[in-house]
Amino acid sequence: MSVSDATTALTEELAARDDMIVCEGVNKWFGDFQALDGITAIIKEREVVVVLGPSGSGKSTWIRCINRLEAHQEGRIVVDGVELTNDLRNIEKIRSEVGMVFQQFNLFPHLTVEDNVTLAPIWVRKKPKGEAEELARSLLERVGIPEQAEKYPGQLSGGQQQRVAIARALAMEPRIMLFDEPTSVIKEVLDVMKELALSGMTMMVVTHEMGFAREVADRVIFMEDGQIVETGTPEHFFTDPREERTKLFLSQIL
């Protein structure tokens, strides 16, 4: 099967699924600097999308706009059928459906690992405490660190913290997971992310980790200067990119 055949097949298969994230002409400025310039993209259910691009290209800003950590100024963002506006209820609804894993993990340093994971289920999902604790234990098991539940984040290594951050996001039982440049991607974390992808989670991953993009991604989006430059399957992207800018980027990074 040739690359273009594969792309066509994927496109057809994806077209049949529901839209999870729809962005139409999204513009955003920080002061005079335009961070996002006419971003238009549709991400389907159960799709795993990797966003690549040089630093400062607007990748992080884009995924932070998707759960409204940053507000876009023009265009439309619709997540799972709910449009992002200043309406507080929409934001609450979307945040409880979108899990986010940060570059710096941003764990709560004064809470134990277990409390980090159970906090949101108890207070946002209004789960009974026992149920939330059970959920936390099974999630920590899933990311491979069940024995660290009683520790504080400061006592863990970077990779362990990253996995706690994933468990914390999963505890809200989100339909979409956003990964903002998971920096210390060690094998264990990659395994967890692959397992998530295989389980049918819709994922958007900003990363420099080409291995993950090659192995797991359904689609790769390349960004530069706040614009989407090129989109395609990993095979297409890594072997036969069309755009000059993409080729230049790949030549620098590979």
């Binding site: 759960n67 950590l69 945040r95 940060f102 941003n106 709560f108 340093p109 207070w123 946002v124 996001a169």
Partner: peptide, 27 residues
């Protein structure tokens, strides 16, 4: 208290009051 703590609280869906009481003030 670092900005990331506010963002993480927002991202898991805590309300402003909950964020203040459980995350920001203790730290």
């Amino acid at each position: 208290v670092r900005r990331g703590q506010y963002e993480a609280s927002d991202a898991v869906g805590l309300t402003t009051v909950q964020r203040t009481l459980f995350i920001v003030l203790p730290q």
